[in-house]
Design a protein around this nucleic acid. Sequence first.
DNA 1: ACCTGAACACCGTTCAAGT
DNA 2: ACCTGAACACCGTTCAAGT
Lengths: 217, 217
Amino acid sequence: MAEPRSEQQLDSVFHRPQRGRRSQPALSRERIVAGTIALLDRDGARALTMRKVAAELGVHATSLYWHVERREDLVDLAVDGILAEAAAGLPGPEAPWARAVKETAHRFYAALASHTWAGEFAGSRPLVGPNAVALSRRIVSALGECGGSEESRAVAIRAVSNQILGAATSAAAMSRGVHDEARAAAVSASEVLAVENGYFEQVLDLVLAGVEAREGA
Amino acid sequence: MAEPRSEQQLDSVFHRPQRGRRSQPALSRERIVAGTIALLDRDGARALTMRKVAAELGVHATSLYWHVERREDLVDLAVDGILAEAAAGLPGPEAPWARAVKETAHRFYAALASHTWAGEFAGSRPLVGPNAVALSRRIVSALGECGGSEESRAVAIRAVSNQILGAATSAAAMSRGVHDEARAAAVSASEVLAVENGYFEQVLDLVLAGVEAREGA
DNA sequence: ACCTGAACACCGTTCAAGT
DNA sequence: ACCTGAACACCGTTCAAGT
């Protein structure tokens, strides 16, 4: 039974105080995150065990506990890790709001969908890492420019973020889903993803059409 | 490493052939599903272990394997179980398409959101049980009446189902999320759910406004 | 400061055995 | 047909011990 942690405690999952070091330690936050992501990409969500992450890094499972408090911290760090690139290239403040929403949402979704294990964790862990927050904030700020009441902006924000989370979750579920052999033979997983990526753009356009229709009313 | 199962195999998870029986068995599909749901409602997703489900039913863990093939079957059965009520009261074919979509989507979402553990499993298990399928089909048929190309209907279907899945996933994640004590003291979990339920309706209206705007264009 | 090793209380699943 | 019991190969996490 893990008890809930306060904002401040959770913040310390992502930003750990640096210590002065004399001899180079074998493990570090960065190495642990990289190893965890490599393991997840290779073997999937179910392979995320303390022992396997440790083995990936040539170390004992118990050693990880010096650097993280619990297994769930590895999940949070890995998920936020794959959002780093997406969060690094956000549209600037000069971008028109609709384009900023579309581009940010697409980067967010594409990062999650290209590592399907991330979608598998989306329901059990809130996305509160710094990169997820940066992406969310950019969407919020863009939708803040489109006019309307505070209430209607709150609705638009939820519509867009549900779209991202729903598409990522469904991509993850599909990747573990019923494999009709004929279909599996015909189209590879990456082709499916390409099609779904195209749908994501259209679906988001549809949502934004709703936002604009509302704004015009 | 569980290997994927074909459509037919998966179907047999939900519809098991009935056998003639002489003496009443202690366990049954129905009792197992009911016990699993009770356990999940009481103790959460992490409590779903074969041993605990068995204890809930006063039986040994290994006995469950006579009735199900693996732990994941319990997940599938429990999730589809909580969708039974929602699938039982679908809007009839005479309902106007937009109302049918809204009502069905709301029933779907509300069922998932009122058992947050279901949202936690949404990313790891595709919703392919008979009740989930019935709900999805009703949404598909309703959106089939709203005109537009096949492509645009496919987009609308994804928009609505992403909305359901995204809202349910985010409700689940929030229920395990950062507990700001002040906020937790001020509003109970059920109050939050009530607010989010209201948002869901508005968000769905927004999406449907997009569908209608597209159709008008 | 950082890692090891033993230990504890769990897991899912298998299979032979009972009735 | 249906359930038990022992067993196997795992889990996360703790803590004393090493360096």
